[in-house]
């Protein structure tokens, strides 16, 4: 994430995009949760619910947990 910053350290202006990315993910997760709730109540389909959960999990792992860092910053060999 520090790739986004230009040169000087304490310049919060640069990081708006990263904050924004987190916020967008959060909104997407909230929407998916709402869909999940309505599917669960009105259209009880286990398969659909599991698919929704997997989609949410993929978002969290990708954006919030930064799984890609494992291979982007991973191998020092």
């Amino acid at each position: 994430m520090s790739d986004h910053s230009h040169s000087e350290a304490k310049s919060p202006v640069v990081d708006k995009t990263v904050y924004r990315k987190g916020f967008n993910t959060f909104i997407a997760l909230a929407v998916l949760t709402a869909i999940e709730y309505f599917v669960g109540i009105y259209l009880p389909s286990a398969v659909l619910l599991i698919l929704l959960a997997v989609a949410k999990a993929a978002l969290v792992m990708n954006v919030f947990m930064g799984i890609t860092k494992l291979w982007r910053e991973g191998d020092h060999h």
Binding site: M1, K10, P12, D15, Y19, T25, F26, T33, V63
Partner: peptide, 19 residues
């Protein structure tokens, strides 16, 4: 819990930028 997750993300980004 979802909101707390978003705040956690903010905190992490902030610490990466020393904000």
């Amino acid at each position: 819990l979802l909101v707390s997750s978003w705040f956690m993300n903010r905190a992490e980004v902030a610490s990466a930028n020393e904000d």
